[in-house]
Structure formats: C-alpha cells, structure tokens
Deep mutational scan, measured.
Amino acid sequence: MASQGTKRSYEQMETDGERQNATEIRASVGKMIGGIGRFYIQMCTELKLSDYEGRLIQNSLTIERMVLSAFDERRNKYLEEHPSAGKDPKKTGGPIYRRVNGKWMRELILYDKEEIRRIWRQANNGDDATAGLTHMMIWHSNLNDATYQRTRALVRTGMDPRMCSLMQGSTLPRRSGAAGAAVKGVGTMVMELVRMIKRGINDRNFWRGENGRKTRIAYERMCNILKGKFQTAAQKAMMDQVRESRNPGNAEFEDLTFLARSALILRGSVAHKSCLPACVYGPAVASGYDFEREGYSLVGIDPFRLLQNSQVYSLIRPNENPAHKSQLVWMACHSAAFEDLRVLSFIKGTKVLPRGKLSTRGVQIASNENMETMESSTLELRSRYWAIRTRSGGNTNQQRASAGQISIQPTFSVQRNLPFDRTTIMAAFNGNTEGRTSDMRTEIIRMMESARPEDVSFQGRGVFELSDEKAASPIVPSFDMSNEGSYFFGDNAEEYDN
C-alpha cells in the first residue's frame, strides 16, 4: 500500500469516517454492505422474486439502478423543472426478469421514488447511507470498465484509444464523492478537466460571474484530485501550473494530454476495490451473516471469500459463452479491467482472455432483445487465490505491452514486471518541450526514458491461498515475461453508450 500519510484510507472515504482504527473501519464497511443486503432482500420480497430470480444479476442491476435514481437529487430536480413526455419524475423502474413456464419473461416495473427511498433508509437504520449508494455506483463503473473500451470518449477529448488503461471510473457520476474520486484513473480526471476547458473556450461566460466562481472551485478541486494521483514531483508541479492558470485554454489542454500520456509509464495511484452486485450481499445477509459484527474490507480476502460461497446467475444470449460472461463479471467484481492478464489468470486459476476474444456482450439486456431465446446460467466467480488490492500504480518500471492497449494499471499487489510499449508511448511525445512547463516536461520525458521494462514492481508481494486469511504465506508467482498482458488488445469491444 502506498503510505497513507495525511490521506484517509478508502474504507474511511467509503464510510465518510473520520480517523478510525482498522477494526472500526471493518465494522463501518460491514455496516454499509449489510445495509445493501437488507435493502436487496426487501426489494425481492416487494417484487415477489423467487430465490433464483433474486440471484439473477440482471435483476440486481435494475434494483441497484432504481435506488441510485431515487437518490439522484440533481436529476430529480431537473426532471421536475423540465417535464418530458412519458417520463414521470417521481417514478423509477426498469426490467425485471421472471421464469414463467420454463421461459424467461421481461416485466417492466415502476415504483415511486419516495417508496424506494423509504425501503433503502429502513434497511440502513434510517440513514441515507450515501456510502452504500456510492458502492453500487463503483460496481456499475467497474462493470462498464470491463465491458467497454471507451474509444470515442478518448478520441473526443484528444487522447489515444490505446490509453484505455487510464480510464478507470470514466462512467462514474460526478456525485460519487471521495470514494469515487479515489477509483478514477488519470485519464478519467484528464477527460473531465478537458471537457471543462473546452467549454470555457467555447463559452465566454463559463468562468464568469457567480456560476463561474463555482465552476472555478470545481476545476481547482479536480486538479488537486489529479495532482494527488501522480507520484513524481515534476508531474505534480505541472498540475500546479494547470490549476493556477488564470484562464484555462489550449496550453492547459496540451499540458493535460501530455500528463495523461506520461501516466502510461509514470503511473498514478488509483484505488481498486472489489464492489459486488447487491444480489451477492442480499443472500449472505439472508443466511444470517452479520457483516457489521464480522467486519468487512473491500481490499482484502473478504470479497473473494464471499464470491467463493455465492451463487449468481445471468441471462445468456443464444451465441454467448457462459464462461466468457463469467470472466467479464469476475473482472468487474475485482475492479480488474486494466490489470495484467498474466496476473489475473494466476489468481483466477483459469486463463483470462483479452476482451476481443470473449464471445459475450454486456450483462444488460436491451429492451428490444428477444426473450424467447434467452437461457440462463451460473456465473463462475470463484478464484484459485486471493491478493491484496493496490492503491498505487506500482513502481515506475515497465515491460512490453500489446498493440491495442499500451500499458496497464495494476489492481493487485503482486510481484511482476509491468508491461508497456515504450516505443509507441515515446513516439507520441513530439519533443515539444517549450513553453512555461518546459523544464517539467524535459524531466518527465527523462524519467520515462530511463524506466526499464525488466524491473520488478511490488517486490516480494504474492497471492494467498483462500485458507490464508491473515495473509501469512505469500506465494510469489513467476510470469512468462514475453507473454501478452493487455485486456483490450487489438480490440473490438462495443462502445459504451450512456
């Protein structure tokens, strides 16, 4: 783990906690998980779902989305002020799938948001429990990260689609708070800032007046979040320049895209947490497990152990491969979309394939898809080993990566060399080191050039047997250095459309 220093740990961010010791953190995270579980059980009762239907990941996603929508204050306010045809701002819903006479049927349900809020609060001892809501947002974000390569979004903001390893959390809503900021990748933060800068260039009043003052505060806050992700002084200094700019424009845009590229080699610290679907927490609570009393951590053995003992089902389209669908969801559960496939294969105990080789589309089923041909199958979400999630980018030494994705962002704290394609990355730096950030740029390029592919990161860190909950005997895996390590390699994943 990167030293926490003055930073709060993510469990504290996750639970809005002030400084807590490890036991208190485990208890408050457990409380959050228990609340999600209780809410899910109650919703299944309301909807009269069978046990099997309640364990269907598509039903879980609909129920999670309903509660997130019920608590989305800004959108609710907007919907009330701008009524649109056929949208009731006070209601929320989605597809629920039921097994009827041996076939899967889709039923569109509609609930009062007020009623959903009441059920959620009741499951969370009367609190709004925003930490639990954020947790579900991060699960949705991790699922998107594993399912889609955001080529269009990258290109629109002047970045290269091969930089997708920097895009963790790119679909997280803005209201996801400190826990959300911690899991956002460098590219995601750059993209958010670039969008602001572009608006400022096109709209003279963007930075002016009372609204402009708020915009400015948001801009500086985002700059500080991004600065905190960088691990070298030169990158941090460049972020200070971007933040202090009187009138952010093209120079800042250039600096930010430069920094994003540099992060492929001088990786930023991005938190990883295993956020599971509500249909995993519900049955665990129903079986009598007391998360608050037992304590829970999002970055240790607990999620692995929970998945070892969970039964989750998914709808499967006619030509999809259930094992591939399982891999997709497994990666999402562990926030591992940008991790090295060699490491993932070792931990999972079966070969993890790149996205383009998977015969599976996303987990969600569109409303126009034919239910007649839908089957369902068990998702295999178990693992051979477990490993500690990392909050750091690993040290800054790398190795060759593949054509589709030119770097990785480690999820697990496991000893290995970190793949990246130096030639491709360095070719993108057209040696432009003039301007006010020239000395920093020169320094950053120097550090990137001296990074050695064969150097090892996370020295001495290994994986653990599932029986080793105290992480007492690390097993340090050895990897084939020459092997392909990137998930979005030469990829044809669908595009994420909101």
Results as ranks from 00 to 15, higher is better:
127 D>T: 09
152 R>A: 03
308 Q>A: 13
377 S>R: 09
206 F>P: 03
245 S>W: 10
256 L>Q: 02
360 T>A: 11
442 T>G: 15
27 A>S: 08
213 R>A: 02
410 P>H: 11
283 P>M: 13
3 S>Q: 00
62 T>C: 11
200 G>K: 09
95 P>G: 02
340 D>E: 12
3 S>K: 03
161 P>V: 14
487 Y>D: 09
133 L>T: 06
442 T>R: 01
461 R>Y: 03
72 D>N: 12
372 E>T: 15
101 N>D: 14
344 L>E: 05
478 S>H: 07
419 P>Y: 02
169 G>M: 04
430 N>Q: 12
485 G>Y: 09
295 G>E: 13
180 G>R: 08
19 R>T: 01
366 A>P: 10
111 Y>V: 13
226 L>K: 08
307 L>F: 14
274 S>I: 00
169 G>N: 13
472 A>N: 11
329 V>K: 00
69 S>Y: 14
245 S>H: 01
369 E>F: 11
1 M>L: 13
207 W>A: 02
200 G>F: 07
11 E>T: 13
434 E>M: 10
124 N>P: 00
466 L>Y: 10
67 V>Y: 13
131 A>D: 08
86 G>R: 05
463 V>G: 13
452 R>M: 06
358 L>W: 10
224 N>T: 05
119 I>L: 14
123 A>H: 08
257 T>N: 15
284 A>H: 11
125 N>R: 05
461 R>Q: 11
100 V>T: 13
369 E>Q: 12
428 A>Q: 02
491 D>M: 14
359 S>Y: 12
405 Q>H: 08
262 S>F: 11
489 F>Y: 14
180 G>K: 04
434 E>P: 15
430 N>K: 07
115 E>V: 08
334 H>F: 06
332 A>V: 07
70 A>R: 01
182 A>D: 00
448 M>G: 10
283 P>H: 13
83 P>N: 09
49 L>S: 00
180 G>Q: 09
189 M>P: 01
115 E>R: 01
159 M>W: 04
358 L>K: 03
241 Q>F: 06
407 S>N: 08
323 A>Y: 09
324 H>E: 12
140 H>N: 08
66 M>S: 09
380 E>Q: 15
39 F>L: 07
264 L>A: 09
463 V>I: 09
84 S>W: 08
